[in-house]
């Protein structure tokens, strides 16, 4: 499958790893977490791919900074809620992010735009192998790498791909596709990982089971599914353009109108409408706008980024006003 089809937004691989005979973070006390965090920081500092990384202690970050990291998919809600003894190590290009003392002692993640599962797996695999020389990972011959939640034992590998499935949603075909994926052991989640709400028709597709398959087996199986779903999406878009062109033009026109004229806008509304414009770019209807500007606008209008951009803490009402203003500025010169 080509990477520039507009259907696959990003790829991610993450490995769950724990140190043998040390309590998992939720069970360990703060003192134990702080001690282990220091040891893990030292080990991470020696990993070649993490050279020059930022190391951010959750105990010293303010809530807005944590929100920004969440919106950039670098940390989870769970890590954001933690304090002293939990941390994030992240490379300057944000391609590799390691959560320390989240649900597990280590969550090694690599993220890349487009369909690059092999690339992200290679990166986390290298980080893991280098850490393996320094740390004694909890491992059982039968269950593989051991994790705080039994759902992550085995490889500890979760590979996920963010897909933009507007065509299937507009053709009312998304539900059977999701159910079909669930039936064959593929998890489908929303944009922010937790829960199923797929803001902006963006879905995270990932392997459910981590035990009994090799890493390559997990990757190959997911690649196959992603490729099939992407084909369904492309077909749905083609059928939309054939049979429902006026409907799709109307949707894009309405999205454009609201985005360029609204004075108050929630983040959910912004993502949903920008997603329709993204589809408009992919099918060649929206001009003078790029997918990267859409992505930038989506990120910038999230609560954390918005407050960083404005430079002060805003109430929800103030955020909705600032969001509408930023969207108007960002999309000023688009045409359809």
């Amino acid at each position: 499958m080509k990477q520039d089809t507009g259907v696959v937004i990003s790829s991610r691989a993450r490995l769950a790893r724990n140190v043998r005979n040390v309590a998992f973070p939720e069970w360990a006390g703060e003192e134990e977490c702080v001690k282990l965090c220091g040891e893990l920081r030292e080990a991470l500092g020696n990993v070649s791919l993490l050279r020059g990384s930022l190391f951010l202690d959750m105990g010293t970050l303010d809530p807005v900074d944590k929100e920004v990291l969440k919106e950039r998919h670098l940390i989870s809600n769970e890590l954001a809620e933690r304090g002293k003894g939990s941390a994030l190590a992240v490379t300057s290009d944000e391609g590799i992010a390691v959560m320390v003392n989240e649900e597990d002692h280590l969550r090694l993640q690599a993220i890349s735009p487009g369909l690059n599962i092999a690339d992200v797996w290679e990166k986390v695999n290298i980080v893991d192998s280098e850490l393996d020389r320094k740390l004694d990972f909890a491992f059982s011959d039968r269950l593989g790498y051991l994790a705080a939640c039994p759902s992550n034992v085995g490889t500890g590998l979760r590979v996920s791909v963010m897909m933009h499935l507007s065509g299937l949603r507009l053709m009312n075909e998304i539900e059977p596709v999701i159910k079909g994926m669930n039936r064959i052991g593929v998890a489908v989640r929303g944009l922010l990982g937790e829960g199923t709400e797929a803001y902006g028709n963006m879905f995270q597709v990932s392997n459910q089971s981590t035990l009994g398959e090799t890493e390559q087996g997990i990757i190959d199986a997911l690649m196959k599914i992603v490729s099939e779903v992407a084909t369904h999406e492309q077909n749905a878009r083609a059928r939309l353009m054939e049979g429902k062109k006026i409907h799709i033009l109307d949707q894009i026109g309405r999205a454009c109108g609201i985005l360029m004229r609204a004075m108050v806008m929630s983040s959910r509304e912004a993502i949903d409408l920008l997603s329709i414009l993204r589809l408009g770019i992919d099918i060649g209807i929206v001009k003078n706008l790029t997918v990267s500007r859409i992505n930038e606008t989506i990120l910038l209008t999230q609560p954390g980024h918005l407050q960083k951009f404005v430079g002060k803490v805003l109430s929800p009402q103030e955020r909705d006003e600032a969001r509408a203003r930023i969207v108007r500025q960002k999309l000023g010169d688009i045409s359809i």
Partner: peptide, 28 residues
């Protein structure tokens, strides 16, 4: 969530049905 990696040995019998509900296979 378990407390530590040794819990997998301590509660191995109790964990069997849990693991079976989460994974299709039982050998890494």
């Amino acid at each position: 969530r378990l407390g530590c990696s040794t819990c997998y040995e301590t509660f191995s019998e109790d964990l069997e049905p849990v693991l079976a509900s989460m994974h299709k296979k039982d050998q890494h």
